[in-house]
Design a protein around this nucleic acid. Structure first.
Lengths: 252, 252
DNA sequence: GTGTTCATTATTGTATGCAATGATGCATGT
DNA sequence: ACATGCATCATTGCATACAATAATGAACAC
């Protein structure tokens, strides 16, 4: 559950598991990605340090790491807040993702070992398996999201390129909330399965043009879904009476 | 001179100019990018804090930011060291750059405003200007590098996509030392001018396929140069009696 | 009623002290 | 001579205390 995308192989910053900074980092990231805070909510250092049970020093360091990853934003002398669901920013991230995923697929076609492809196939099999069981209408949104990320993770790993893996990992982490909303609010699972299968088949066949196009089409679909996600999200937010961009302070 | 790639518009982490952390961050980054330390050199927190004139706390935070950007690496309870010039890692970064630059060119063709294109043209004019003056064999390596980065910066800005700008900025920062060695050790200026012109013309003409191919070819050229850079670098390092990978400690 | 000013308060930024962990060198035994 | 174990030392990780800055609210003038 605490697995990152592109789990082992792409070290998270100062990966040491024993340190309190690492603990604070993981805890906070988990809270944020599981929507424990309202979007845009202000993050008080003392409150968080008490919640997590560490001093302010490691907590501040964790906050800075998370800012570097784009999950929180902070202005000097003004503290940090959770990123809000900003449709425009999400669209920009998705546009970037279209290029990155396409290129990752392209490189993976060329550099993947047979083991890499086997791993990709294995994850795809898990997706199919979930798809079969799902006919009974069992709600497994969390597992859907997890597998949807995993398939991209193993494809990125198949590039054997740490830089590409890193960029992929960062991008998906920033998109995670939005993707979560997508699978939660929209029922895009069937399409997702089809598209993932198309990507996997093309990569396994080492068919570069087809893989690139499949990967890009997948993201474009996600992009066109975002309009609907935004609408549903706006409704939900209104129900909870959350302001649009809560802490947006005056800018000089 | 303290201008980042993708200067204003892409905030550096916790961009506040007044804080000591920011000062420490900028100072350290400057030192590293100007090769003030040997590659792989160990960075003692107390020594650095005395050099820069701040306490350990903001310095530690600056180090963590730099780690997140890939300029230093740190292992828990063991401190930080400057990244060493690792040809394999550089190649991986350049492979990633090929995809990113190609995609940036593609998006820029579609989304650039006329002002954006004017800025691109302006920087290209500066390059041409430098090229003309340079016939007199005046050595202006620093300016060459600066303009070489700037042209990519303004093209990235022309995408109007913060995510792509951010990824570009990060990638070029990590590559900066390698690119510096490239223009310093090899005399690749003439080729670079030609390639930059090809990219600019294609982007200004909004010719997507040509722009993508030009951008990619430029990076591929850089990639094939790296072999030579590595050889020359190895010689230089040997002259200074620097070990290959200084602080590589045993891994369990 | 609205806008402005100032004092209060809360929160962040920085410095320092202590504890814990890893590195270093020497002595010792084989 | 080489390896092993131990003691010492340096350095990092963390917590806390203090200073500086920004947010908050009340009082006041218009």
């Amino acid at each position: 559950m605490s697995e990152n995308i592109v789990g082992p192989g792409a070290r998270s910053p100062h990966a040491g598991g024993g340190t309190l900074r690492h603990h604070a980092y993981e805890s906070l990231k988990g809270m944020i990605l599981s929507s424990a805070f309202h979007p845009g909510e202000r993050l008080s250092e003392v409150r968080l340090s008490q919640m997590i049970g560490v001093s302010r020093t490691p907590l501040r360091e964790a906050l800075m790491l998370l800012e570097a990853e784009g999950l929180v934003i902070g202005r000097p002398n003004s503290g940090y807040c959770v990123v809000h669901f900003d449709p425009e920013a999400i669209r920009a991230l998705l546009v970037a993702r279209e290029g990155l995923d396409g290129y990752v697929a392209e490189v993976a076609c060329r550099t993947a070992t047979d083991e890499d492809l086997a791993r990709v196939t294995a994850v795809m099999a898990e997706i199919d398996e979930l798809d079969r069981r799902r006919d009974g209408r069992t709600l497994e949104t969390a597992r859907e999201l997890e597998l949807g990320l995993r398939i991209h993770e193993v494809i990125a790993a198949a590039t054997r390129n740490p830089a590409l893996q890193d960029m992929t990992r960062r991008l998906y982490e920033r998109l995670r909330v939005a993707l979560w909303l997508e699978v939660l609010l929209l029922d895009s699972w069937d399409d997702a399965v089809r598209q993932h299968r198309a990507i996997v088949e093309a990569v396994v066949a080492r068919d570069v043009p087809r893989a690139v196009e499949a990967a890009r089409a997948h993201v474009r679909d996600s992009l066109s879904n975002m309009a609907g996600v935004e609408r549903l999200y706006r409704e939900r937010r209104q129900r909870f009476k959350l302001p649009l961009r809560p802490p947006e302070r005056a800018k000089p």
